[in-house]
């Protein structure tokens, strides 16, 4: 496949650092200069610096920057309260809101030429999915103790040996589906953009796909966070 030009990799190359060409670098330095990692760090830096600049001193009458963050945080909080109730939403808000903002930005940055989406690498999405998956098991254990594992056996005692296999497969499938969905959507968008640009880039053929990409980026972020919310709520609620 044609290798796209990535600004950070070009700059790193120019400084003299090695930039790996495969999906996994050999040495530690090559692993650290992987494009998906460098772009992930770029997003993290952006998310540190921009709120610091816009929210440096809070004002009673908010300006444009503060207004944006207030609308975003307030909207997310309303969304979580609607699905989990106020206390649980307050407890889980830092994790899930961070995921949402990071995923939206990570998806959107791939629409700029010379940048790539970190979420189009399976490493990033599997890492995020593992966090969510472990989180919902930890929450379930904290709320119900050992009884949490009893709901894997289903309601009928006779059927328990069969139900536990089904439930375990269903639970591990969450790992695959949650990570593969985000990864596949974003990778498909990137490859589609690349192919269209190579074939008919001169007549702005990728333009409709760019508009679609904005929509897909938002929807996939919402879906990831919504599914995380539903897994966590399912683990925390009382067993029937």
């Amino acid at each position: 496949m044609e290798h796209p030009i990535l600004f950070i990799s070009v700059i790193l190359n120019w400084i003299g650092l090695p930039v790996p060409h495969g999906p996994i670098g050999g040495t530690l330095l090559e692993k650290l200069t992987e494009p998906y990692l460098t772009y992930s760090w770029l997003i993290m830096a952006f998310l540190f610096v921009v709120p610091k600049l816009t929210l440096g001193k809070l004002e009673l009458v908010p300006g444009t920057g503060q207004n944006f963050w207030e609308a975003l945080i307030g909207g997310l909080m309303d969304f979580f309260i609607e699905h989990m109730g106020r206390e649980k939403a307050r407890m889980l808000f830092p994790v899930l809101a961070t995921f949402f903002i990071y995923i939206v930005l990570a998806n959107m940055i791939g629409l700029l030429p010379g940048f790539m989406s970190p979420t189009s690498s399976l490493n990033i999405t599997v890492a995020m999915t593992l966090i969510v998956w472990l989180l919902h098991h930890i929450l379930g254990f904290r709320y119900h103790g050992w009884k949490y594992y009893k709901h894997f056996t289903g309601p009928i005692a006779v059927m328990a040996p069969f139900m536990i296999i089904l439930e375990l497969i269903g639970n591990f499938a969450r790992l695959v589906s949650l990570s593969m969905r985000l990864f596949g959507n974003i990778l498909a968008k990137e490859i589609l953009l690349g192919v269209l640009f190579m074939l008919v880039g001169a007549i702005f053929a990728p333009l409709p796909i760019l508009c679609l990409g904005v929509l897909v980026s938002l929807i996939q972020a919402v879906v990831f966070v919504l599914l995380s919310v539903i897994y966590c709520v399912g683990a925390m609620e009382h067993a029937h």
Binding site: S177, M180, R181, G184, A188, I219, V223, L226, L227
Partner: peptide, 13 residues
Amino acid sequence: ILGMALIESIAIY
């Protein structure tokens, strides 16, 4: 939207 995402994951596979 939730159902769409679950169905869509099949296509993504």
